[in-house]
């Protein structure tokens, strides 16, 4: 079930209140994490809301959002494919995996596919280097020792799931 925007805002409000973050400037990053988890990205109205709630000027909020790679003000794909481009993966051919994902899905890095299902991101070391090259889909699905031939299989798995 897809939640409505009001419901998501309500959840964010609860999170802020439960943790006593209201008016707390140092909670900004924690709240942005939660907001991105809920909304999938950080739309302008959400940032305005957070700015208001935590009493942090909007310009400061944008400063933080643009500084950290983790935060995005643009929608990402429903499934985010993160290809590790760290050194240990690089020597195991990670760049070829990355290219293959882009080719198969016909997208540019960090942009969602036209159906919104996928986006492909080159990321830094995921801390699973012994299984290099490593691909992580969404939050927790790790694929290790990936070869270019496995790329279509990985994609179709998520296509089936929808």
């Amino acid at each position: 079930m897809v939640k409505s925007k009001e419901e998501l805002f309500k959840e964010l409000e609860n999170f802020i209140e439960e943790n006593g973050y209201e008016g707390k400037k140092d909670a900004l990053i924690q709240v942005l994490h939660k907001a991105q988890e809920l909304f999938g990205y950080l739309p302008a109205d959400v940032l305005e809301y957070i700015s208001d709630k935590l009493d942090v000027p909007l310009s400061k909020v944008y400063g933080v959002v643009t500084f950290y790679n983790f935060f995005s003000t643009k929608p990402k794909g429903k499934h985010q494919i993160k290809v590790c481009l760290g050194t240990a993966c690089y020597v195991k051919g990670a760049d070829r995996i990355f290219e293959r994902f882009l080719e198969e899905l016909k997208v540019n890095p960090d942009e969602p596919t036209s159906d919104g299902m996928f986006s492909v991101h080159g990321v830094r070391c995921l801390g699973a280097c012994s299984m290099a090259p490593v691909v992580m889909v969404d939050e927790d699905d790790f694929y290790g020792r990936v070869t270019p031939d496995m790329v279509p299989q990985i994609i179709s798995k998520y296509k089936r799931e929808g």
Partner: peptide, 25 residues
């Protein structure tokens, strides 16, 4: 406290800035 994807945030003073809710410079 959760980091947000910046290598430089591992530098201790940048890490402190980040815990204070600021960009990790």
């Amino acid at each position: 406290r959760l980091g947000a994807g910046a290598y430089v945030a591992g530098e201790e003073t940048a890490l402190i800035e980040s815990i204070e809710g600021k960009p990790a410079r």
